[in-house]
Nucleic acid binder design. Structure first.
Length: 499
RNA sequence: GGGCCGCUAGCUCAAUUGGCAGAGCGCCGGACUUUUAAUCCGUUGGUUCUGGGUUCGAGUCCCAGGCGGCCCA
């Protein structure tokens, strides 16, 4: 690909010439390099070496040059590799002029250059574990200047657009994404250990179902038809329960055509799982056990802090109905038996907008979200949602007008959604049709009738518990970060000017 | 979508009421054999986000736009 013409500002960032061999030729970059140790390994194995001692062991390491201290006939440098966030992944390089090949070339390396080094593992007189530079090779030149070695990179825009730089200079960024990776791995293993099977279902949907959200639309040329990017995993996974996958899960990207914010990115990662013969109570048990397991593995405890405030994820978590929590928060007893006019009056009082088409269930949910949800530090399972706003959940076994549904709330945010799943195809068709009427009336987030899903239910869905967890939000809690953009490697951004 | 705040050298930041656009780090050159944000000396580096306007004079004031952050819906 030809380089486009560059503006002067880019040329200025090419801050130096190509590093050359002692004879002036361009330095050759090897095609491969074989490190046999990492910074973290060496600290672990040789950390106890005496000051000034040599280990008698030779190691080969590779990474980026992050600091450099040339002192005449002796040079020190700090190499960072992938073996740990921040200081855990750093090792000092020790380069005396007398033994270092092409000492001048080594001293002329810049911050950000990739190098490979082979040499004796030793400790300096001042007690810093080091690899002596008996051999070294330039692996890549940093032709753009690295950010300030002390202040790093703080501009959020640059951090998100140039994550490849952020990961090197901000320890927290690397730490958070390593935590995210481990969280995904631990979640898979934990579920598999309990007999769950991981599957992959389509990202392109002909009907965007399973959630309350505006979908993205794309077009398939050969079929000449519009397709939606999935807003949820739910309906395909329940088809698989019909198909006999009794414990099934998927961790996948979903897409919602909504605004961006500290908790919202248009594409995000959902875990959804379905368990035959289980109900929403079982899903609460599973949720608190899984989250407690992840907290223990990733943070060493279930008593954490989030944003400086204590957060105790130790099971069991409180379980309380939505109406009960609204009453605690507002002092008002509001439920589905409250006259519609009273609910509307409460909405006006709490500045909740409503329309004439909104039933009591919609108003109750809106009131809950406006007055109560953000105040719940939790963890707490908010249970028993109005049927009117829960078209895929099964009717509550005791409370008329409600369904068996809960959302786990942590730090004022919903991190998931779960039901005793609606089994009955006749009831399901009725709730789909109610949704379709809302859609026809202008609710862009309402669902459409999914005839194939209804056909699947007609073959028989056993009693099933289903759970969805927003992985990004869970990572936010466990990594103790405030914005979703800090847990998504390449968050959605507006294009840069001029691109 | 609304309100508020921000955008100055590669990075982190200064610049009194409108009055010569600066520092540290980086980069480049020099000194230095136990440094670790090494230190010391000397350079280099600017479309002050963009476009208009007011003014003798605009980084600074006004208008429009771009991008980002925070709060609200």
């Amino acid at each position: 690909m030809a380089d486009p013409p560059r503006p002067p500002s880019h040329l200025r960032e090419e801050h130096r010439r190509t590093v050359s061999e002692p004879d002036g030729r361009a330095r050759r970059i090897p095609y491969r390099f074989e490190p046999d140790a990492t910074a973290a390994d060496l600290v672990e194995r040789f950390g106890a070496l005496d000051d000034g001692a040599e280990s008698g062991t030779t190691a080969t390491v590779a990474g980026r040059l992050m600091l450099r201290r040339v002192q005449g006939k002796l040079a020190f440098a700090t190499l960072q590799d992938n073996s740990g966030p921040g200081a855990d992944g750093r090792i000092q390089l020790f380069a005396p002029a007398g033994t270092t090949p092409d000492f001048d070339g080594f001293c002329s390396l810049s911050l950000g250059d990739w190098i490979g080094v082979r040499g004796e593992v030793m400790k300096t007189r001042r007690g810093e574990l080091s690899v002596r530079v008996d051999e070294w090779a330039l692996l890549a030149e940093a032709r753009r200047a690295f950010p300030d070695k002390w202040h790093g990179l703080t501009d959020t825009d640059t951090r998100y657009r140039q994550r490849y730089v952020d990961l090197w200079v901000n320890d927290d960024a690397r730490r958070t994404f390593l935590l995210r990776s481990r969280l995904l791995s631990l979640t898979r293993r934990w579920l598999e250990d309990r007999g769950f099977v991981e599957v992959e279902t389509p990202v392109f949907h002909t009907i965007a179902g399973g959630g309350h959200a505006k979908p993205f639309v794309t077009h398939h040329n050969a079929l000449d038809m519009d397709l939606y990017l999935r807003i949820a995993l739910e309906l395909h996974l329940k088809r698989l329960v019909v198909g006999g996958f009794e414990k099934v899960f998927e961790i996948g990207r979903v897409f919602r055509n909504e605004g961006l914010g500290y908790r919202w990115n248009p594409e995000f990662t959902m875990l959804e799982l379905y368990e035959a013969y289980a109900d929403y109570g079982d899903m609460m048990d599973l949720t608190e056990q899984l989250v407690a397991h992840l907290a223990t593995e990733l943070r060493g405890a279930t008593r954490l802090t989030y944003g400086g405030r204590p957060l105790d994820l130790t099971p069991p978590w409180r379980r309380a109905s939505m109406t009960e929590l609204i009453e605690e928060r507002t002092g008002r007893r509001l439920d589905l038996t409250t006259p519609l006019d009273d609910l509307r009056q409460a909405c006006d009082e709490f500045e909740v907008p409503w329309t004439a088409g909104d039933g009591p269930g919609v108003l109750l949910l809106e009131l809950y979200e406006k007055t109560t949800e953000a105040e719940l530090w939790g963890p707490v399972f908010v249970t028993d949602y109005p049927a009117e706003v829960s078209p895929l959940a099964r009717a509550h076994r005791e409370r008329a007008g409600y369904v068996e549904r809960f959302e786990p709330i942590i730090a004022g945010r919903e991190i998931g959604n779960a039901f005793s799943e609606l089994q009955d195809p006749v009831e399901q068709r009725a709730t789909f049709e109610a949704q379709a009427r809302r859609k026809a009336a202008g609710d862009e987030e309402a669902m459409a009738v999914d005839d194939d899903y209804l056909r699947a239910l007609e073959y028989g869905l056993p009693p099933t518990g289903g759970l969805g967890i927003g992985i990004d939000r869970l990572v936010m809690i466990l990594a103790d970060v405030a914005t979703i953009r800090d847990v998504i490697l390449f968050p959605t951004l507006r294009p840069e000017a001029g691109s």
